[in-house]
Amino acid sequence: MTMNIEISPAELEAWLIDRVAGYLRLDAQEVDPQAPFSDLGLDSVYALTLAGDIEDALGIDVEPTLAWDYPTISALSDGLMALVRAAKEAA
C-alpha cells in the first residue's frame, strides 16, 4: 500500500496498528497503540521490517532504530507525522 504524504495522524496510526497486528498475527483490535512494542512482542526483525514498510509507504527515509526511538505505536505515529511534515516542507 502506498500512502499519500497527506495522510492524517489517525490514518497513520491505524495503518501502523494494522502492520503490527499483521506481523504478530493478531486482530488490530488486540493491539494497544499505547503499549510498548516489546510488550506487544515486536522483535528486532519485525521492527526493521516495519521501518522498511514505513519508508516504502510514506516515501521518507527513517532510521532502522525507529521502534526504539519511538517505543509505542502512538509515539511512532507522532514522530512520523513530524517527519512527513518536514519532508513536505522540504519538497
Rank of each mutant, 00 (worst) to 15 (best):
M1G: 14
T2W: 07
T2D: 11
T2A: 11
T2Q: 13
M3Q: 13
N4L: 11
N4I: 07
N4D: 15
N4F: 04
I5A: 14
E6D: 15
S8H: 03
S8C: 09
P9F: 06
P9R: 03
A10M: 11
A10R: 12
E11D: 15
E13N: 13
A14R: 13
W15Y: 02
L16T: 07
D18Y: 02
D18V: 10
D18M: 11
D18C: 08
G22P: 08
G22N: 12
D27P: 01
Q29V: 12
Q29D: 13
E30C: 02
E30A: 15
V31P: 05
V31C: 02
D32P: 03
D32K: 02
D32R: 09
D32S: 11
P33L: 06
Q34H: 13
A35D: 07
A35L: 04
P36W: 08
P36V: 12
F37S: 09
D39A: 15
D39K: 14
L40V: 08
L40K: 04
G41S: 05
G41M: 10
D43P: 02
D43Q: 06
S44F: 01
V45E: 07
V45A: 11
Y46M: 15
A47R: 01
L48M: 15
T49Y: 12
T49H: 13
T49E: 15
T49G: 10
T49N: 14
L50R: 07
A51T: 10
D53V: 00
E55S: 10
D56W: 00
D56S: 12
A57H: 01
L58Y: 09
L58H: 03
L58M: 10
L58P: 07
G59N: 07
I60K: 09
I60H: 09
I60C: 08
E63P: 03
E63Y: 04
E63T: 14
L66Q: 00
L66T: 09
L66K: 05
Y70K: 10
T72M: 06
S74Y: 08
A75G: 06
A75H: 04
L76H: 02
L76S: 03
L76D: 00
S77Y: 05
L80V: 03
L80S: 00
L83W: 01
L83I: 07
V84W: 04
R85P: 03
R85S: 13
A86M: 08
A86Y: 04
A86I: 02
A87N: 07
A87M: 01
A87L: 01
K88N: 10
E89M: 11
A90H: 03
A90G: 02
A91F: 06
A91Y: 04
A91L: 13
